[in-house]
Nucleic acid binder design. Structure first.
Lengths: 359, 359
DNA sequence: ATCAACTATGTAAGCGCTTGCAACGGGGCA
DNA sequence: TGCCCCGTTGCAAGCGCTTACATAGTTGAT
């Protein structure tokens, strides 16, 4: 361990018992002012810092909490973790993080982690519900984030279905009829929700399976995967008019594939993303913004309340998303009609719903 | 604390002493095979997990390490932290993070954190060198990252000076003469290095102070700040021909300010960034790439070696950067000469030094 | 002057685990 | 048959801290 100077040394030097040192340091009223001053002076001089392990053991608390997520790649999780860290630190707890990376030993790692915190936020597809139950049994508080409600746990989500329906309606209104979902609904609960909303809206709009195959074009979450997935589907003669992508990275890859295929965006092909990451703005990507930072922050606060022993009833919140329209979609012109010969994305074409200012 | 079932229960149920349980669980050879099996079975049945605090106290180790950085906003720190987390987790330690946010109580937080880890990576401008010394005295291993070497500590940096000189030379070769540095050298050691390299190269190129004021246009690290800083300096009649920005966010803001000012990029104004974040590609930003992920990963490995008690000599590494040329700069045409009337950034104008593929 | 009622401090019992050392029971060898 | 040695296991001493409870030392009231 680190700390060389212990409470015993302070006690000896200050001529008191370790109990008094402990009390003085934690501001107990059971210490006379002069004694407290003396102890504090000695502690300061010796640069004493109580051993965290000793305290944890004696108090039965860790003063720490964790967040578990599938991966840290891409801006989404970073933002969530940032929001989390900020609040937890403010609340006086240390912050542990763990990315499961879809590893087979994820469960073991999470269980291990659960042994050093008072509570943890569990995101998306990281560990199974059995693991949650097991952890909760040991007395660790739990909050679910971007993961469907389960057991007696609080949960925080965004309204993926609703957002996706709005997105599809917008595309429909712009004249797009042959849509295609790009992304793997099995990859995360969020994508599953987006896909569900997509299918719902497409059904509601009465689009035939011939126009819009319900089957998603599955791919992982990165730009490269989006590129390849899009390229595969854009080769067909009956290619889609709009690609509804699982997130912004995939969409950005799709955009690039469109460019490579010589397709004019948005005239011949619309592409939409999800999250509204920073690059989405510069890629002029229509997307659905979700309050990433706030997700993490809210989870942190709820967890804190749980650790403090909050209400017995699980809370569930579903945050709204916001459609952000940029020039990767727009009034659709049938690919049979005339199109401008060069690939140009007009920088001024579309007044975004919410995309102004330099920030 | 969390764990309800202790080593005592396992011992009782297995009909052995806690010592034997402990040995069996940690794979000591001092346990007969049948005993081990029995203990393991009971432990499994009871779902026993040794208390982390108990272990830490007895072992004098935390099996955890931390990384301290100024902020998590923006992709740079996220990437570094990601690289760090991945390696540390692989090495079997838990990962703590702490963002100082320039708060006044940062030192206190860092000291507190130091009490629950075996080692920590300290980034940039987070705490003073005195704090490092003090922490090291308690036996916690330290590695400095993106921070100048100090004391007996390992350090890892990127070659900001070199990268900046190359950048300036490139601009010079393209015909730009009136350059201006945008960003605050006091904000971080990295920016200080970039600024130093900028000044050096500008001096070496023989640019007069009238052409290129050495004085930086100070601003913080975000897009908004870059926008405002650029707008301020682009108003002048003797405005710069090129803005060398402290990082990509600032540059992206500057680009937007240029657009608002009706300036043609790169004909009338060049803008460069630093880091090569994802948005830089879509903003077509010339920038300097640094291996963010690798920085974190290397720091993690070095820290691990230090914790294990590595060599007594501090190691220092300076990683190379790489110029990434995109169309935010290019052959400069004097603003007095003819320029195309509309703001168009040619998508194909420049063959980037290293910017191909969809990934 | 006496005793109750405080106040300030010390004592000691944990918190759950690791590990040096003692103890015990056989087996092998003289 | 006796002794030594070795493989196993238990004992107990911490690791550094918190806190209920006991204990002096005061003070004020009677």
């Amino acid at each position: 361990m680190a700390n060389r100077v212990t409470i015993y040394e302070v006690a000896k030097r200050a001529g008191v018992s370790i109990a008094t040192v402990s009390r003085a340091l934690r501001g107990s009223p059971l210490v006379a002012a002069p004694t407290r001053r003396r102890v504090l002076a000695v502690a300061d001089e010796l640069r004493f810092r109580p051993s965290r392990a000793g305290r944890s053991l004696a108090e039965g608390q860790h003063a720490a909490s964790a967040i578990v997520f599938p991966d840290l790649a891409g801006p989404y999780y970073s933002e969530v973790v940032l929001g989390y860290e900020e609040v937890v630190a403010e609340l006086g707890r240390s912050v542990l993080i763990l990315a499961t990376h879809g590893r087979p030993n994820a469960t073991e790692k999470v269980l291990e982690l659960s042994g050093r915190v008072d509570g943890m936020v569990i995101m998306g597809r990281t560990v199974g519900d059995e693991v949650l139950t097991r952890i909760a049994e040991t007395g660790v508080a739990l909050v679910l984030l971007a993961r469907p409600p389960a057991g007696p746990f609080d949960s925080i989500n965004t309204d993926n279905e609703h957002g996706a329906r709005g997105l599809v309606r917008h595309l429909f209104d712009d004249g797009y009829r042959r849509l295609r979902f790009v992304g793997d609904p099995d990859a995360s609960p969020d994508v599953a929700g987006r896909y569900a909303g997509f299918v719902e809206a497409v059904d509601a709009a009465g689009l035939t399976a011939g126009q819009t195959p319900r089957e998603p074009v599955r791919c992982t979450f990165d730009v490269q995967a989006g590129y390849e997935a899009a390229r595969g589907v854009l080769g067909n003669r009956e290619r889609p008019q709009a690609l509804v992508c699982a997130n912004d990275e995939v969409a950005l890859g799709a955009l690039r594939a469109a460019e490579d295929a010589g397709l004019v965006v948005p005239d011949e092909l619309a592409v939409t993303g999800w999250d509204d990451i920073m690059a989405a703005r510069y890629g002029r990507l229509t997307t659905v913004r979700q309050p990433m930072r706030e997700l993490g922050a809210t989870a942190a606060r709820w967890l804190d309340e749980r650790i403090a022993g909050g209400s017995p009833h699980p809370r569930h919140e579903v945050l709204r998303t916001q459609l952000v329209v940029r020039s990767s979609c727009g009034p659709h012109r049938s690919s049979t009609s005339q199109t401008s010969p060069t690939s140009q994305t007009s920088p001024t074409s579309q007044t975004p719903t919410k995309d102004s200012g330099p920030s």
